[in-house]
Nucleic acid binder design. Structure first.
Lengths: 338, 338
DNA sequence: TTGTATGCGTTATCAG
DNA sequence: CTGATAACGCATACAA
């Protein structure tokens, strides 16, 4: 079943078939329709290897995750993201190729190789950093990309699907503030990530605006151990915070465990909230108050944007991600004066 | 940078290059060595599209996951598995293509398409069922495959990497039995999966051997809601079980939540254990006693076996998966006579 | 043992 | 608007 078969059956040449099915000029509407009908009837699909070889599409997009392999499963984020990307891609018969890299050098090498071999038509970038070396390389390579980010892209750079971390932070703090919390601490992710920095800035601005003392922020590497340590540190202080916000729900659940062990009751003695939502936040007791985002939807949007960018001649504009909403559960309450 | 470049630089023909680098006869050891040296020096890697087109490798293997997209992230299993597969594949510069299918028909169609287009060199199958239609199709298509299973493969079928669910079940029950538990219930996964059936059989055999009454088994669809319902049902019975084993840690944590809400103390009033381990099992309080398996390692082994099967002429033998060990934590204790 | 020629299925160029 | 024809990079049967 090749394009030659389709051409033969439709009584045209293979180039006519190519033109007709790639929607480009060079063929009359009538023959185009006939060719499409024949192709559909024969169930023909272009051979992707041949297409890639002849310089067109590979019908594959890539995702490189730079995290230690063993820690990946801890967070639901990547799985949800992958599921969403997949779903958005499948509509166009485009596959997803996955790679776990252990270093930035590896990641950059992979992009070079993919470009050289036309292995993928584009890539999805996560965890943008400040002055991200990947963006530079990708524009140099001319490899289409979208970034899961927290702001629209700079002109000339790959478009982003973005969720405004500043607004998300304010929403959560607003809620805690309204409950009466004034000493709010934070257990954050690594400072090298843009979203960590954004949240820190938003939190500082929020508190400054209200003449509240600045928040104590303890950075972690997202690991459960670090989360536990940070929480232990915060709860041991002379004037312990009445509320702690965690950058991920793994950190938050680790913090919950520490509170339990220290005999600190949640939410009576300390309120706990997380920026990340997942099944785990709903499963633990008390259930975690979180900012919930639909990560699957996030992935779907990224996939569609990437496909558009691949098809487009010039740069396509960035796009806002799904809404993030506050899910109030059982881990937060007004502070009790101790 | 093509094989012609390498040939030119080494002063040989492209066919010599092909022979030399694919390790097949038709070239002397001396020239083979020289060609390899030149290829390494030039950093040449074969273009995968061209290889796929000319009937050789696509340097890509596929994984189809048949689960609803939104429920994927709930369980760490797939993420860990993907990370492991990736790691085992990367050693040979083979990529992983991922697809989430919503029905068996979709899944089968994908295998057909992948075969027709030589898009992948092989596939990894999870969640084998009894009389699995996929195995039949894959042998018919001649598409190499490995199955993540609980027993060695039938002769003539795709090899498996297998973990003996019967033994795992016995180990866990042995432990609970030694603690003194006699009324042990189980919250299981769907009965259509082989591993569910295996565990049920193993549990029945274990109890029968000790003249204990058969266990009450409540099947679920692996969802948190089903897990909560099942647990509520079991704990409401006249003679409630003193221990409950759960087929996954999501189910177990859901059960833990129900116990908490019903005022049933864990492990004092009921012991809880899970067949699945993940970060969540360690994060919740009380920490869950589980059977822990290294899923990343499982994936790595599957990847290596698949690569061997792809290279091999005939069928390769099945292989045992990583050891599953009991991790005793805080959710189990001897039953207290109430 | 080595080189030459052809095919894989598509896209793209360039005459008609 | 259409139909030959040449790449694309590799593998391989075949001839030297």
């Amino acid at each position: 079943m090749t394009s030659a078969d389709v051409a033969h059956r439709a009584g045209v040449s293979t180039s006519a078939v190519s033109y007709a099915l790639n929607g480009r000029p060079g063929v009359s509407d009538a023959t185009r329709a006939r060719i499409q009908a024949v192709a559909a009837e024969l169930g023909w699909r272009p051979n992707s290897a041949a297409r890639a070889l002849s310089g067109a599409r590979a019908d594959l997009v890539g995702l490189v995750i730079k995290r230690p392999a063993r820690s990946l499963g801890t967070e639901a984020f990547y799985t949800d993201l992958i599921a969403g990307l997949q779903s958005g891609l499948q509509e166009q018969h485009v596959g997803l190729s996955l790679l776990v890299a252990s270093s930035l050098e590896d990641e950059l090498a992979i992009y070079r190789e993919w470009t050289r071999d036309r292995r993928v038509d584009g890539v999805v970038l996560t965890d943008p950093r400040q002055g991200d070396a990947r963006l530079e390389l990708l524009t140099a390579l001319g490899l289409p990309a979208v970034v899961l980010s927290n702001h629209p892209s700079e002109p000339g750079q790959a478009p982003t699907v973005w969720i405004d971390d500043g607004a998300v932070t304010s929403t959560l703090l607003e809620y805690l503030w309204a409950l009466g919390h004034r000493r709010i601490a934070r257990v954050s992710g690594p400072e090298k990530y843009e979203h960590t920095v954004r949240r820190t800035a938003a939190m500082a601005a929020f508190l400054a605006e209200r003449q509240a003392p600045p928040a104590q922020v303890v950075a972690t590497d997202y690991s459960e151990g670090d989360g536990a340590r940070a929480t232990r540190h915060l709860l041991s202080r002379r004037k312990a915070p009445t509320a702690i916000v965690f950058d991920s729900d793994v950190l938050a659940v680790a913090g919950l465990g520490v509170a339990y062990e220290m005999g600190v009751s949640v939410p009576r003695d300390v309120s706990i909230a997380s920026f990340d939502d997942s099944a785990m936040a709903r499963l633990v007791r008390p259930r975690l108050t979180t900012m919930s985002q639909d990560t699957v939807e996030f992935g779907e949007r990224a996939a569609r944007l990437l496909l558009r960018q691949i098809d487009a001649d010039g740069p396509v504009p960035s796009e806002q991600g799904p809404l993030v909403t506050l899910s109030v559960r059982d881990s937060t309450s007004p502070p009790t004066s101790r």
